[in-house]
């Protein structure tokens, strides 16, 4: 990827430092650091309950951190509301897509920010921009004028992601975008993630699927029990190493299974 090396070299678009967040008795995040550069896909992985969604909500302004610093293009910022995050250029696609099934694709893409023409909805401009956007992202759907209820899961996911792009974000947060999808539809979404990267956007991708992670991510950040447990270069790291970091030990059920058929490998932190 042409954009990647220069991206990682410069100032990260988004940098988190020492993020902690607590829910009552649960310390969901402690001292978490994370960096995302332009044109880079960072996979955020970790076991269930590791704090991935909590971290996404911190960045998206839905559930601000208790302590820690967020820097946007080098400047410290406070992200205390979804509006503030969107204002900076952070777009979030939640696990539950939140599309209106009864509205068509154009209606969903522009929901809450409809274009108007003398106070009246400008369907022509919205349809044109929707088509241009989908065209640019090579997204195929039969028509932008059918209700999203009649789209497949993968198409709905791509509509949800496209929707987040209308605000011209610099960072896109995707929470398990492929969790409910089949093989072909997963490939569609991963293609789209790669297109976002090639257009210079930073992407944080949560996924439990190591194959997907290895396929599209540039770096893999592992969370374990609310703490950083290593950031790996996706190309130069084996799946076993990442899994070890996720589960917290080289001696675990996954690696023991591997060891029986394969030569065992030690986990390394960074």
């Amino acid at each position: 990827m042409a954009a990647m090396p220069e991206g990682t070299a410069g100032t990260p678009v988004l940098a988190l430092e020492g993020i902690s967040k607590r829910f009552g008795a649960v310390q969901a995040l402690s001292e978490v650091d994370l960096e995302v550069h332009a044109g880079e896909v960072v996979a955020l992985v970790g076991d269930n309950g590791a704090g991935k969604s909590t971290l996404i909500k911190v960045i998206a302004g839905v559930g601000p951190a208790d302590t820690g610093e967020i820097r946007w293009e080098g400047r410290p910022v406070t992200v205390t509301s979804p509006g503030a995050a969107q204002g900076l250029g952070i777009a979030t696609v939640y696990q539950d897509l939140a599309l209106c099934d009864n509205l068509d694709v154009v209606g969903n893409l522009f929901l809450g920010r409809e274009l108007r023409h003398f106070g009246v909805l400008d369907e022509v401009a919205m349809e044109k921009r929707s088509r241009d956007l989908l065209h640019t992202l090579s997204i195929r759907i039969p028509s932008v004028r059918i209700p999203v209820a009649s789209l497949s899961g993968g198409q709905r996911q791509t509509v949800a992601i496209s929707r987040s792009l209308l605000g011209r974000p610099k960072i896109v947060l995707l929470d398990e975008p492929t969790a409910a999808l089949g093989v072909e539809q997963t490939a569609q979404v991963l293609d789209l993630v790669e297109r976002l990267r090639s257009q210079g956007l930073g992407v944080i991708l949560i996924s439990h699927n190591m194959v997907d992670v290895k396929a599209v991510a540039d770096r893999v950040a592992v969370l374990r029990l609310g703490r950083n447990n290593g950031v790996f270069d996706a190309r130069g790291t084996s799946q076993e190493e990442i899994i070890s970091a996720i589960t917290g030990a080289s001696d675990n059920a996954v690696s023991r299974r591997r060891a029986r058929s394969d030569s065992p490998k030690e986990a390394t932190d960074e």
Binding site: R129, D132, L133, H135, T136, L137, L165, L166, G167, R168, P169, L196, S198, Q199, G200, L201
Partner: peptide
């Protein structure tokens, strides 16, 4: 334009 960077078409 509200399309993303590089989206000009």
């Amino acid at each position: 334009g509200q399309t993303p960077p590089g989206a000009a078409d």
